[in-house]
Amino acid sequence: MARKKKEMPELNGAGMSDISFLLLCFFLMTSSMDESLGINRLLPPIPEGEQEQIQIKPHNVLSVLVDGQDRLSVNAKVIDIRDLKDAAKEFILNPTRDPNKSSKKEEQINIPGRGTVTFEVTEAVISLQNVRSTSYEKYLQVQDQLTKAYNELRNEKSIELFNRKFSDLDDKQREAITQIYKQRISESPPKDTRKRK
């Protein structure tokens, strides 16, 4: 008995493109491309009860003020936003040991692979102030430039110590660098910020 040869019916692929087009349209409608990128900040907690005032020596403070006309001044001198980063870096580093700029104190920091090393850690604090009519765009530009100053300092230190960029370090190395250049940006809210009801 001769075996009957069964032929598979051919699958029609014409409808597949329609189905996937529909799916594609669905995803295009319901999803958005925007990636969430931004500048990270940590707000200071509300002090509870009586709190001791931490005295910061005035020469350690770089006061950055953005006024209602979006003018930027650093230590009461009007400067351009493009010069802010270098001004901040110079203030933090203080290579000439100017007594009017930030001082340093020695601190023991554990460097992975090298043990504990004594570093001169800067005591600089950047005080950022704005008024209620400052525009958010200008404010964020200032925040961006200050972050950039710290990032560049960390990067330089990281290349010096580990021969790698700060972003390529592992967690422990990153922590060591962060201890050398702690990002200290203090913000005080505008005077007439809403009080709790």
């Binding site: 969430s36 500048i39 009519s133 809210p189 505008p190 910020t193 709790r196």
Partner: peptide, 26 residues
């Protein structure tokens, strides 16, 4: 285009809520 006044108010409110980690989208 927002003015910082409302932003400061929101930040103060977040401090009171103990929501301290923030990110400014950019």
């Amino acid at each position: 285009e927002t003015k910082m006044g409302i932003v400061s108010d929101v930040k103060e409110e977040l401090r009171r809520c103990q929501a301290l980690k923030i990110i400014y989208n950019a």
